[in-house]
Design a protein around this nucleic acid. Sequence first.
RNA 1: UCCUCAGUAGCUCAAUGGCAGAGCAAUCGGCUGUUAACCGAUGGGUUGUAGGUUCGAGUCCUACCUGGGGAGCCA
Length: 430
Amino acid sequence: MTIREIGNYVDQEVCLLGWLYNKRSSGKLHFLQVRDGTETIQCVMFKGDFSEEVFKQADTVPQESTIQIIGTVKRDERSPLGYEIAVKHFELLNEAQEYPITPKEHGTAFLMDHRHLWLRSSRQHAIMQIRSQIIQAVRNYFDQNGFTLVDAPIFTPNACEGTTNLFETEYFEEKAYLTQSGQLYMEAAAAAFGKAYCFGPTFRAEKSKTRRHLTEFWMVEPEVAFNNLDDNIDLAEDFVVYIVQHVLQTCRRQLDVLERDISKLENIQKPFPRITYDEALQILKEKGTPEQQVPWGEDFGGDEETVISQQFDRPVFIHRYPAQCKAFYMKADPENPKVALNVDMIAPEGYGEVIGGGQREDNLDILTHKIQEHQLPMEAFDWYLDLRRYGTFVHSGFGLGIERTVAWICGLHHVRETIPFPRLMGRLRP
RNA sequence: UCCUCAGUAGCUCAAUGGCAGAGCAAUCGGCUGUUAACCGAUGGGUUGUAGGUUCGAGUCCUACCUGGGGAGCCA
């Protein structure tokens, strides 16, 4: 029996193993908030039902002590869960030492130092359950739509985009880097399986300190043979709607705990607006401040993304950025080679870029030329160029950042709360 | 890397250059329906580190360390 399924046990006697989350006492009555990992329930003890010692003990149990409760499940409107347990038997299995996280407020640094304990708190508990459901939705979606899971390596011999800082590590006699994307490998997978995706951690050694950045984060990256840019956007749109609807169906209580505005999520239905980079610049011209006027050719910053996303009540796709600010593998638009066939998806409410992707360059000569142009080591990409030598094909894909998606769906201010043990610049512990 | 703010009790924060304090937590007592319960009492301090100015520094100055917020880059 877990508290999550307590509704099936009304008026029955149950045995509950858990931890004391909080307690209130009223002289002849104790109210114990007990959590078992699934939920928290109020357990009520009347003085007359217990010996002097046991009733006294229950009043002095420290927070987070391990306890066993035997009692009867009652429906009760006064209890937050709608049910409570009338306790018949109380046993202290382990008395906890003084618990550092109290029901009062704490600072971010203190909570992050105690992340291993903070995960027990109701808000963090709700966030992790939503994260788990988001990941389940990701897997369901691809599994049900003919994709094959193809795991990409974490050790890589070279930078696949070259520019950003990578974590370097020793690999026997040579240097290796922690992956920043599985994309190049997914292109190989698309040629082998048609529809493929990978899901795993990625690493960026950038010394960025913002609420949207982690040094280690999880990314899901589908890649599909014979999809062009429009097909790719269709896929991303369908995928995001599926994830949000799945969370709405499975995590109502958790969204409640987080006080998330559900109506904002119910809005997330097809179609999402699709605008070009040039149209996005036009929006900034009309709605942005003087500082937010981006000259053609430059990428948007967080503030600019927010201004653009505020014009819409659902995620917005921005496509065809200037090729000069995008990676070498992006295919240029045949109708205007100055722009790339890429797409970013900006989440609403200022949550920023959640998806980045596009159609890949499939021409051997053009791709070779671009690698030279970006001054990347040709030998590192020899295997990658093989994909254009042996049956090249139109293909597209994208990467979705799990933590930013969780932050958006949960309505959180900072991505550090969206992953169990965040890795940030200057934070490696716990 | 740059800009900016902060560091005082276990936690969150006060303290005009002049006696280092409150709420919560802890400990003890009270209360028969509490919802961050409430009421009373008790204990709790190398004011981030090193130096300097001053009769006197938590407070002013210098350097360093740590953390928060923001920027660039990105998912």
